[in-house]
Design a protein around this nucleic acid. Structure first.
Lengths: 184, 184
DNA sequence: GTCCGCATGTAAGGCGTTACATGATTAA
DNA sequence: TTAATCATGTAACGCCTTACATGCGGAC
């Protein structure tokens, strides 16, 4: 499906949403069209094929179902195998590479995590997340300090944008940890 | 090359870097491998084909050149046409869609902007950037206020992550504007 | 009876990823 | 002379994007 893990961002979102409750492709399209989740995708040409792939992998199962009317519609629900894949995917440890290349996927994993894995693994995930980000920020700052005066102004500002973005993520994670722990 | 604009993120980076100074593919690979710019790509399987495409489009031109040694190496330099394309690409107005789907590409455009377009267009770009982000943040907050109590905890926290991320970008832009204006 | 919303798709194309391939040159 | 580094690629694959296609049901 996707390179390292077997789950592209879109597939992960689909699997997570269908885990939350059985849905049709159209339900998900509407969700993507009307909520911020839509930043993941907004085209049927991605969603329907992705659902097919998930079904072929036996991670979801489509059933002919009816909504309010009796139009043809396929309601997908997650399988036991799909649950297992989702759990394993969400439980994977965070690497430096994830932080550099797949930060948004980490957030997506987090978004489903409490319902799939429960509270404690979620908190641990955020702790790892914050730690990896701190390490990466340290790297970036070291680099910036070394070349600050050599860089074109906008290049430097763009790099600072990246650093501040990571710092914001770490702050957010620590706030989220506090909030999750106060709710236990 | 890419959908709306004719320049994928990688191609934009390549064109911008070659605009800054003539380079070989290997130079750029090293740059990607050793600087934060590398978050764009790190594989020769992407870089060399992209350079070929840019050359076929006549936006860059490869010349056999020698570095310190006399190994075969191709030094690429930007053409007049390439300069024009780069200018036009960087000068494109910012849309809401850019903010939702291509935020990182906007930052990349910004990174080359002062050298390609000069200071005033760069400041205007940042003003537009901040304004579009403010609008999007308002949308997201409106949505969040409507469904806050219905969302699973991690889902809400993930959404807040997105909102705070955008807010940080707007703050950064305003700081960058001040800095650019104080340097004129 | 026509138009809009529901619901599911297909087709073409592009680009990035991983992995592998190839040779030439310098340092040990 | 062996290994590492320089330097440039190719091949297979997967997924997303845009655009187009289809057909039913309800509302007016």
């Amino acid at each position: 499906m996707a390179q390292e893990t077997g789950l592209s961002r879109l597939s992960l979102a689909l699997l997570g949403l269908i885990f939350q409750q059985p849905q049709t492709g159209y339900d998900i399209r509407r969700l993507f069209a009307t909520t911020p989740l839509g930043h993941i995708s907004n085209s049927p040409g991605a969603i329907y094929p992705a659902l097919k792939r998930l079904e072929q992998a036996r991670w979801i199962r489509g059933k002919a179902g009816q909504g309010k009317t009796r139009r043809r519609r396929v309601v997908y629900e997650i399988t036991a195998q799909g649950r297992k894949v989702l759990e394993q995917h969400l439980a994977r440890p965070i690497t430096q590479g994830d932080v550099v290349w797949h930060l948004d996927e980490l957030i997506l994993r987090f978004a489903f995590m409490d319902q799939v894995l429960g509270g404690e693994p979620t908190v641990r995930f955020l702790q790892d997340y914050a730690r990896e980000i701190d390490a990466h920020v340290a790297d970036l700052r070291r680099y910036l300090d070394g070349v600050r005066d050599l860089m074109p102004t906008c290049g430097r500002l763009a790099l600072e944008n990246g650093i501040e973005s990571y710092e914001m993520h770490a702050q957010w994670a620590r706030r989220a940890i506090r909030e999750l722990q106060s709710n236990v």
